[in-house]
Design a binder for these strands. Structure first.
Lengths: 337, 337
DNA sequence: GTTACGAGTGTAATCGATTACAATTTGCTG
DNA sequence: CAGCAAATTGTAATCGATTACACTCGTAAC
């Protein structure tokens, strides 16, 4: 391994000068700079990242905690995170938690052992273990899409899920629907709470009931969509408008509805959340809410790096704009005759 | 920051003993071990990862180069990589290259600066820059799905794409198809070459022609599928069997075919490659080839870690089994009357 | 002509660990 | 009980960088 000493000998200067040439070129004469750079090239020298980190106390890495890698919506966020991180000279450590607390603890611990400078959480849990809680007090951390539950408040970047829920509900109410069903994901999350609250608020205003039996499902997956439809269609009064709390669920729902012989949107309207890539190419194309996922990832990195640098935050909540995409999976309520 | 010195003082021992207690407990008495562990707990001590890395010369990290994060097939591989890495005590640095050479160089450089111990390439290019080529000679590296082109041979984990191409072609030939079309992705890759060669070999055996105009597209995306269909349907003799070189392309193709009023599989059969999650829930469900993506990721890590440890490899190619999934997007050729 | 200053470079301390080597203690053998 | 080996612990060198401080030298100011 070529180290700074070898280069300094090759260039006939001290190690300090080599270090300065590379990190602070203004401090050395043009003459020596050339000498050093030539030696660097000749030796194929790269500063040892770890050594630099020990000395400076900064790892220039971020950990990202993701509950599920295969969800394309998360991936779009991570794409934004990766891009922004790279622009700022940070690299991204991937932590696939699979929703398990144990794994979250392990990955979160990376910040405590100086392996990473900060942490982006895509899930809604406080990722540190009991015993690490005290140590984690000053750890730079942001959450995207969700809010981190627990004592201390951390900044977050999210959508106005309440308003998005309202927008979809309004859209369906305007089409004359009066029988609603909801297929949900994990109930513990803020996303669930906010989206459903938005939906309920509109229905309440319109005097449309939504009893608890019409809110089914507890996982953001295609299978949940299928099972949810099976459950809802078994009712005497099946819904004519089906709000799925993400696109994956909607994909499953559409699949199962068609399998059971219903026509979309003639017999039943279906909507999603997130606008994943395929949703525009489904049959029929899915009415959904677009989230600026990529942008949210970038924003999260900005907020995190501010924290790492101990710079003040303008605000601790970043609410991103959404967009209602009216496609062909939703339409007028069937005439009830 | 609590460091090893503080802990050693707290426990009334030397730093060496603390280090030994944590890394090699057998070397210390049970009595001192308890003393030290108590101090570690009390101080909330975690060894500084970077410092350990400097000393040992191992970063215990791997870089993964991905051309595209949003492709769910890649993500499944990365999931496997992540899982296996974590089991072996390695962490994963994510390198989204977006297919750009410049970014590949940058991420590949991480191995040269001791930021990572090895490199997994999901793309087909040799990721180091001209000037780094010499230095990269001994860098542990594996490729998954593709083979790395260039001078030195690196081990790889891949599918038998040739056989998979043959399997799909056979399947369609058995249904009596004689007019074939292919929508492809990047032409430079081994995947393209092998899959197409497999397809061609079967057609040649059957005496079925496949002229170059019937092989269109150059990108693994939904849009390519749409454009490919537009191009192929414009011919006097449009194909009745459409082989898409991955599922994304197939999704676009199915969308556009239906838009143009064709029935699948009655009028035209469509097949994909990869078996991404949604492909089973399309309308109609997609006939495709399943790849054990997760398993391939795990295998790649094994091979890479062997290289890092300078252990001998049993073989430099790992060919994984595939499975032909016959679903409803393919069927008998329309009678040509 | 002396002083002061600043630019450029080198010396050596330092970051937080690991580990070779030395020192000490313990245990066992005859 | 002497003598030697093994077990346990401490001392200090080391990994590969960065950087505070000291030094040299040339130039400007008075």
């Amino acid at each position: 391994m070529t180290n700074i000493k070898k280069v300094s000998e090759l260039a006939g200067v001290s190690t300090a000068t080599v270090s300065r040439t590379l990190k602070n070129p203004d401090l050395v004469t043009e003459h020596t700079r050339e000498k050093v750079m030539k030696a660097v090239k000749a030796a194929g020298y790269r500063p040892n990242w770890m050594a630099t980190s020990v000395k400076t106390g900064k790892s220039n890495s971020l950990v990202v905690l993701v509950p599920n890698l295969v969800n394309p919506f998360f991936m779009r966020i991570i794409e934004g995170i990766e891009q922004a991180a790279q622009e700022q000279g940070y690299s991204v450590l991937l932590g696939d938690t699979q929703g398990k607390a144990e794994r979250e603890h392990e990955y979160a611990g990376m910040v405590l052992s100086n392996r990473a400078d900060g942490l982006i959480q895509l899930d809604h849990t406080f990722p540190f273990s009991e015993q690490d809680t005290a140590l984690a007090q000053n750890v730079p951390m942001v959450s995207v899409c969700e809010r981190i539950e627990g004592s201390r408040k951390y900044p977050y970047v999210e959508l106005d899920n309440y308003a998005a829920g309202r927008a979809l509900a309004h859209h369906l109410v305007a089409y004359g629907h009066t029988q609603f069903g909801v297929i949900a994901g994990q109930r513990a999350s803020q996303i669930y709470t906010d989206r459903l609250a938005g939906i309920r608020s509109v229905l309440a205003e319109e005097g449309i009931p939504l009893s608890d039996e019409y809110v089914v499902g507890d996982h953001y997956s295609i299978e949940t969509g299928i099972e949810g439809v099976q459950q809802l269609l078994a009712y005497d009064q099946p819904p004519t408008a089906l709000l799925c709390l993400n696109d994956d669920i909607a994909i499953g729902a559409v699949f199962e509805l068609k399998k059971q012989g219903l026509r979309i949107p003639t017999d039943i309207s279906v909507t999603g959340f997130d606008n994943v890539r395929v949703s525009a190419y489904l049959d029929p194309p899915l009415t959904t809410v677009d989230q600026p996922a990529y942008e949210m990832g970038k924003r999260a990195v900005e907020v995190l790096i501010r924290q790492i640098r101990r710079e003040p935050l303008h605000r601790s909540r970043e609410i991103m704009p959404f967009q209602l995409l009216e496609r062909q999976s939703s339409g007028p309520a069937p005439s009830s005759l």
